[in-house]
């Protein structure tokens, strides 16, 4: 299986742009808060690099940046830990199965979204800040993110460089 790398510019700008869009677009398009662009970017970089170490660190940094924009009294690390785990698992899966075709990308993102939300929810409970969990909403959001991921990954594929 092919292992890819990215230019430093793409590796920095794409996650920053994802966080920027995630923080800005819901102002005009309120439905956009259903999507989790930073998560999709984490998954994309992890499966493309197929390096668990890089996936772990990418997920950690993107998650912590997302945590920093959340409410003042919400502890930093909730998204960080969730995305660290997702980054690691996504890169580990990328080593073992083909994650290049749209079908597997759809299923993979659907699963990782639910896992991410499950870990986040568990951490909120540990931090004594429980949230309501609506299965219908979460499944809908997972599907929406999976569909968006298929299109987004096709765009981001252009920035891949063969190692």
């Amino acid at each position: 299986m092919e292992v890819h790398r990215f230019s430093i510019l793409a590796a920095i700008l794409v996650p920053v742009l994802a966080i920027f869009l995630q923080a800005s677009l819901p102002l005009r398009l309120s439905f956009f808060s259903v999507f989790d662009l930073p998560l999709l970017v984490t998954i994309f970089f992890a499966v493309a690099r197929r390096n668990p170490l890089a996936g772990t660190l990418t997920g950690c940094l993107i998650g912590l940046a997302q945590d920093s924009l959340a409410y003042q009294h919400q502890p930093i690390g909730l998204f960080g830990i969730s995305k660290t785990v997702v980054g690691y698992l996504a890169s580990s899966i990328g080593v073992k199965i083909d994650v290049e075709n749209p079908g597997s990308r759809l299923l993979m993102t659907f699963g990782f979204y639910l896992l991410h939300r499950g870990i986040y929810q568990a951490l909120r409970n540990m931090a004594r800040m429980p949230l309501e969990f609506n299965w219908g909403h979460e499944l809908g959001a997972a599907l929406s993110n999976a569909v968006l991921a298929v299109g987004l990954f096709m765009i981001l594929d252009r920035y891949k460089q063969r190692k």
């Binding site: 668990p52 170490l53 772990t56 660190l57 950690c60 912590l64 502890p75 930093i76 690390g77 909730l78 960080g80 830990i81 660290t84 785990v85 690691y88 580990s92 951490l123 931090a127 004594r128």
Partner: peptide, 25 residues
Amino acid sequence: YRNETVLFGVLFIQIIALATQVRVA
């Protein structure tokens, strides 16, 4: 076990940092 060690290390640091931030209810 380099990858696993890094994963647990990163998670451990974040969990400790999380625990120090959360106020006792």
